[in-house]
Structure formats: structure tokens, C-alpha cells
Write a protein that binds this DNA or RNA. Structure first.
Lengths: 193, 193
DNA sequence: TGACGCATGTAATCCGTTACATGATTAT
DNA sequence: ATAATCATGTAACGGATTACATGCGTCA
């Protein structure tokens, strides 16, 4: 009857918070900073999302308050149920792999620009990802070589390969540009001015 | 005073619709199918989003009705202002590059699983992307080699390189797994059961 | 004493998904 | 007849962003 009763399908924010707190107890403020420093590229989240979610997690018994610091600072830690919930999430079926990629979308419509501007777009793209790549490579140099924190190195490597791939793609695509305005094959549409 | 007056910042859906209609006039129903076939991997959209947006675009004079088909079918085409709007979008600054990647997020917390299960996770990941890769490579074989429709080949190549990258990453990460439970470096946190 | 960083929250809004709802045409 | 497909919409809900709002502690 009810295909999707009560439970939401997404909620990755909860598990991310639980996962971070499984590492060590933290306050909402600290979590916000960790999100912004380490998880921003994989799952951005701001304090206005984090604070209410922490309250919910506490109400559901997945985390608990440990101590109260100076200016109303509240430190949280995972309960055993909380850690179990992250594990359940990691074990259960496929993660949501839907992407929303504005740059790829723009590439799809590059044929609407005159060749000169399409080339400029690809060069901007390559430059951006070259910058990112350099940044990640610098981070990789100082990353720990073992222990749990090493998991973040796995994700960093993901980022490095991703950026490198995009630099190479943009360079390849620039070479392909001439074929875009070649013969009048399917799709048609007026050529750019 | 008002940092973000009235206007929305995102709205990539509008430009995607305009871009597709710049190729050839289509109905909402056709657009829905094209989205699902060609753009799903870059920018998913369902008919319940598309129909209202088409109405808005028409009200704003960026598209216009051309003909009315059999069962109330409404065909739209871009106006010159509409095409100009896509070009503006392509030319103006950086696309929004924020990603939301649940798989990468999970990788970040792999250390919470016993080694056996972490390995299983990486193998599932590799298998999934191997499947995608094969699918895209099949599509690439029949893709047109020139003309505007070739732009979709650029994006397909993006997909191919992306999936290949992820297969290789997962295989590499499997080799790195032992170092995850190595020394007790920063981050700490109890080891998995 | 005033600026900055720490620290926590709420409200308004927007985007996207899921579900609800309806009707016309074509093929079997 | 009736099922499938074509075809267009609206409503409810949830997640995420932006902006609003407040107060404590420390250091120059």
C-alpha cells in the first residue's frame, strides 16, 4: 500500500555524523569544521543542517551527550546502537550513485558555442581541475600512512584520480572539437553564430 | 543589501531544457525521455519537474509553443532569447562543481567494518563500475562521429573515463586495506569487532 | 571596549522525489 | 474490450541552502 512509509531513503547526513562521532566525540561546531575540511568534496553540510540532525540522533538514542564545555559547548559520542547503524548503512545494498554534474551538462551543450568559446570552456575546465589536483597531491604528501585515519587517504586518492581524469578528458575533448561542427548528422539544430 | 534577490542560483534544469530545445522542438513527454536516456547520468529530471518548468519558460518568453499534436501534445521551441540564455549560462563563470557522492562518503568510514566486509564493499564497487563501463563502451560504438550530436559523445567519454577510474580505484584500494588497521595513528576510534 | 572566533540554534525558501490524478490513442 | 503507451499535469514531503538571530570568551 504505502511504498515508502515513514523512512527516508537518503539520510546520508546522519550516517556521516555517526561515522565521524565513532572516530571521536565532538561538538556540532567541530563536526561542522570537519565536514568543511574533509567531507566537503564528498558530502557538503552546513551547521544549520548539522545541529537539528544531532538533536534528532540524540532523541533516537544513536548518540549521547558526554560533556558540556565553556560557552554552551555540547559534546556528543555514539552509542553502540549508533555505531551499529553506520555499519548497517555500509553493509546494506548499493549506495545512491546518482550524480548531478553541472559541468558535464554544460559539455553536452558546447556545440551551441562558437568553436573559440568552446575551446575556452575546455581550457577553463582543465585549469580548474589541474588546480584541484595539485591541492590534493599536496594533501596526500602529509597524509598518515596507516591507522583508521588512513581511510581518508583512500578518499583523497579517489579525488586525485578524479581530478586527473578530468584534466585528461578536457585535453582530449579539445582535440575532438573540430568534429563537433563537422557533418550534419543526427540531432541537427542551427549552428552557433 | 539583498545578497540573492528573487533569482535562484541553480536552475540548471532550465538551461538543460533550453539546450535540448535548441537542438530541435520537442514536447514535455519527449524531453522527459531524452533526459532519461541521455542526461540521466549528468542531470536526472522527471516529468513532474519538467512540465512546470516548461510553463515558466514559456511565460518568460524563452520558449514558445509551435504545434499541438494528437492527445493534447504540446510542442515547444526556443526563442532567440532562449538560445541566448543557454549561451550566457555556458559563458558565465564556473559551473557549480559541488558533488554529493554517497559511495565516497561510505569509503571514508570503511575502517568501521571488519576487513572481510570492507573488501566485499570494494569488490561490489568495482563490479558495479565495471558493468557501467561496459554499458558506456557499447554505447560509444554506435555513437555518431561528427555533427552537433557528437557533443553527447564528449560526455559519454567523460562517463567512460569516470567508470574506468573508479574500477581502478577500487582495485587499488583493496590492496591498501591492510594499512587501514595498521598502526594506531591519529583519529583513533575503537576498531571494528 | 571592541573585534574576532567559538558556539548554538531557527526560519524561509527552493529544488527534487514520490505519489496522486486524469484522459486520449493505438495495438492486441 | 482491454492493456499498454502516449501525454500532461498537481500535491505532499523532505533535504539543503541562505539568511536571520543570539550569546559567551578571549585577546589586543
Amino acid at each position: 500500500m504505502y511504498p515508502c512509509v515513514g523512512q527516508n531513503r537518503h539520510m546520508a547526513l546522519r550516517q556521516a555524523l555517526l561515522g565521524l562521532l565513532a572516530g571521536r566525540p565532538m561538538s556540532g561546531y567541530e563536526l561542522t569544521k570537519v565536514f568543511d575540511r574533509s567531507l566537503r568534496e564528498a558530502w557538503p553540510a552546513s551547521h544549520s543542517q548539522i545541529y537539528p540532525e544531532l538533536a534528532r540522533l540524540q532523541r533516537e538514542g544513536l548518540i549521547e551527550r558526554t560533556e558540556t564545555g565553556p560557552r554552551g559547548r555540547k559534546t556528543y559520542a555514539t552509542t553502540p546502537a549508533g555505531v551499529e547503524e553506520v555499519r548497517r548503512w555500509l553493509r546494506t545494498g548499493e549506495p545512491d550513485r546518482a550524480l548531478r554534474n553541472e559541468a558535464a551538462l554544460q559539455a553536452f551543450f558546447l556545440w551551441l558555442l562558437p568553436a573559440e568559446e568552446a575551446r575556452a570552456w575546455l581550457r577553463r575546465e582543465a585549469a580548474h581541475h589541474r588546480g584541484k589536483l595539485a591541492e590534493y597531491e599536496r594533501q596526500a604528501e602529509v597524509a598518515p600512512t596507516s591507522g583508521p585515519a588512513r581511510a581518508s587517504r583512500l578518499v583523497l586518492e579517489w579525488g586525485i584520480r578524479y581530478e586527473r581524469m578530468l584534466v585528461e578528458w578536457a585535453e582530449w575533448a579539445e582535440g575532438e572539437l573540430p568534429s563537433l561542427r563537422g557533418g550534419a548528422s543526427a540531432g541537427a539544430g542551427r549552428p552557433p553564430p
